[in-house]
Design a protein around this nucleic acid. Sequence first.
DNA 1: GTTGTTGCAAAATCTTTGCACTTCT
DNA 2: AGAAGTGCAAAGATTTTGCAACAAC
Lengths: 150, 150
Amino acid sequence: MVRKGSDKFKEARSLLRGHLEKKGLRWTQQREIVLDAFLMADRHISVDELLVSIRSSHPELGHATIYRTMNLFTEAGIAKESRFDEERVRYEPAVDVGHHDHLICTVCGDIEEFEDNRIERLQEEIAQKRGFQVDYHRLELYGKCPKCSN
Amino acid sequence: MVRKGSDKFKEARSLLRGHLEKKGLRWTQQREIVLDAFLMADRHISVDELLVSIRSSHPELGHATIYRTMNLFTEAGIAKESRFDEERVRYEPAVDVGHHDHLICTVCGDIEEFEDNRIERLQEEIAQKRGFQVDYHRLELYGKCPKCSN
DNA sequence: GTTGTTGCAAAATCTTTGCACTTCT
DNA sequence: AGAAGTGCAAAGATTTTGCAACAAC
């Protein structure tokens, strides 16, 4: 379980404070509420899922605010967008985790993370061979998780 | 240059004919027009780009038809959807090409393709280790192409 | 008191759908 | 003739934006 006092929360808050100060923006209740909900979610969450989880305690907080806030978090380096094979964007925390790729179950929607340095090295090699300078990448394996493949 | 008589065109037409027959669907002028425009495009094309390229010769062909037709082509195995980091879907031919992954230039939008069996094997290995059964994957390297990185 | 922020509704995008009309077979 | 397809406009879904009221500094 993710607790509010964990390192992830502290790091995210400090990143956000820094970003807000640098840009002359403000620390608001709404940003705090969305930040907590986002970090507590502990999975790849969409805006409307966030809205649902927030609405019970803060019914007045609207979707426009969440969109604006998640864009802010992305700029601040707290959240990362992932589009997977869907139309809508999902967000995952970008703090307190190294880079990783995804295994996505097309049956139950479960998303697991993995990391493999050998693949990263091969990607670098392929890009260099073509004179490409890679800034970031995305590797997603779609299929059936152990539960769904029986 | 892609010619209308090339293998790609023949293979796509034959695939489409087979799919239409199997499903009891019909071979129409519009499907032929969209198929030709799609295959001639010879790059990752979006619905509105297709619409523009078709509108000059067939102004009455609407976007709904293109959406429906591209969905049909995807089912028939002629086209493959790629969403990259955009909101809209792009399509690429699924015939006459092996599986490949993408290098995407974030400056000029250029998309190159590559293939690497070593990476594919590592993906398989990672998935197996977790009991995941991979159906398909997606690997995209984002960065600057030789022209744009100077 | 400024200036940024929010909440709502409206607009913008991309995609799908309902329906009358047309076109295959 | 009958069933499927098309074209248009309308509706859906997701995301952004304009603006008056509000809150942070």
